Amino acid sequence: MSTVLVIKAHPKTTDVSNSVVIGDRFVKAYQAEHPEDNLIFHDLYEEGVPEINSTNLDSWKKLTNGETYQNLSENEQILLSRQQQLQEQFIHADKYVFVSPMYNLFLPNRLKMYLDLVVVSTKTWVEGEHGPKGTLQGKKALHIQSSGGTYHHTDNEFMAKLDVGDGYLKMLLGQVGVKDYQGIYCEGNSHRDPDDMAANRELVAQEAEKVAKTF
């Protein structure tokens, strides 16, 4: 049995979203194919993500300097408990599914905040002789992304270099040891009318359902 962490990072919670629709189709197909697996879901825009700010930096420093968890304030304990929960889930998951739109060639800010929280020195990577060495070996990841432009299904070399967010996610996960990385991309949406967009979304959703069988 595998544990699958499904991270949705889209502020649209009621309107139709290409990436969310495709992500939901993937999950449904995955559950049908792997009924024994345990899926953990996080909607980062509904739940919120603890922000790395002076408050939690001070709390981490207190613990590093020998302060006990019990002596922290109630708010500090709640904050650190939530952070630890997210970190432990990320570390112990076997598979990761990220569902997001592209924003300004990058990831949505709450997905970046989440990654900053769960990718932690000594827990997800350690310093090796030749640089960072990931500790999360043998895991796999999938990124389901929608975008207005076309960056992957194109022969345009300039456009192919512009999806910085997907490249960053792949690189960061690779640093912590997750080398098996796939992407499913619903692209060119800013140039489509509603009918064409729906048709393209359906094609990509069918692709996602196929990937779910072997993921």
Score class of each variant (00 low, 15 high):
Met1Ile: 01
Met1Glu: 08
Ser2Asp: 09
Thr3Trp: 00
Thr3Tyr: 06
Ile7Leu: 10
Ala9Val: 01
His10Trp: 05
Lys12Cys: 01
Asp15Gln: 09
Val16Trp: 09
Val16Met: 08
Ser17Gln: 05
Ser17Glu: 01
Ser19Thr: 02
Asp24Glu: 15
Arg25Lys: 13
Phe26Asp: 03
Lys28Ala: 15
Lys28Gly: 01
Ala29Cys: 06
Ala29Arg: 03
Tyr30Met: 09
Tyr30Val: 05
Tyr30Asp: 04
Gln31Val: 06
Ala32Leu: 13
Glu33Ala: 15
Pro35Cys: 01
Asp37Arg: 08
Asp37Tyr: 01
Asp37Phe: 03
Asp37Gln: 07
Leu39Lys: 08
Ile40Tyr: 06
Leu44Tyr: 01
Leu44Phe: 01
Tyr45Trp: 06
Tyr45Gly: 00
Tyr45Ala: 02
Tyr45Lys: 04
Glu46Leu: 15
Glu46Val: 11
Val49Gly: 03
Pro50Leu: 13
Glu51Trp: 12
Ile52Tyr: 07
Asn53Ile: 07
Ser54Pro: 06
Thr55Ser: 15
Leu57Arg: 12
Asp58Val: 10
Asp58Leu: 15
Ser59Lys: 04
Ser59Phe: 10
Ser59Gln: 11
Ser59Ala: 15
Trp60Leu: 13
Trp60Asn: 09
Lys61Val: 11
Lys61Gln: 14
Lys62Leu: 12
Leu63Tyr: 02
Asn65Val: 07
Glu67Tyr: 09
Tyr69Thr: 13
Gln70Lys: 14
Ser73Asn: 10
Glu74Met: 12
Glu74Ile: 14
Glu74His: 12
Asn75Cys: 10
Asn75Leu: 13
Glu76His: 05
Glu76Cys: 07
Gln77Tyr: 09
Gln77Lys: 13
Gln77Cys: 08
Ile78Thr: 13
Leu80Gly: 03
Leu80Pro: 00
Leu80Tyr: 11
Gln83Thr: 09
Gln83Glu: 15
Gln85Arg: 14
Leu86Ala: 09
Gln87Arg: 15
Gln87Asp: 05
Glu88Tyr: 02
Gln89Ile: 12
Asp94Ile: 02
Tyr96Phe: 10
Tyr96Thr: 04
Val97Thr: 03
Phe98Asn: 00
Tyr103Asn: 03
Phe106Leu: 11
Phe106Cys: 10
Leu107His: 02
Pro108Ala: 06
Arg110Pro: 01
Leu111Lys: 00
Leu111Ala: 00
Met113Trp: 07
Met113Ser: 14
Tyr114His: 13
Leu117Glu: 10
Val118Phe: 03
Val119Phe: 01
Val120Gly: 04
Lys123Phe: 05
Thr124Glu: 05
Trp125Ala: 07
Gly128Glu: 11
Glu129Thr: 09
Glu129Arg: 08
Lys133His: 03
Gly134Ala: 08
Thr135Met: 12
Thr135Gly: 00
Thr135Pro: 02
Leu136Asp: 03
Gln137Phe: 07
Lys139Cys: 04
Lys139Met: 04
Lys140Asn: 07
Ala141Gly: 08
Leu142Gly: 04
His143Ile: 12
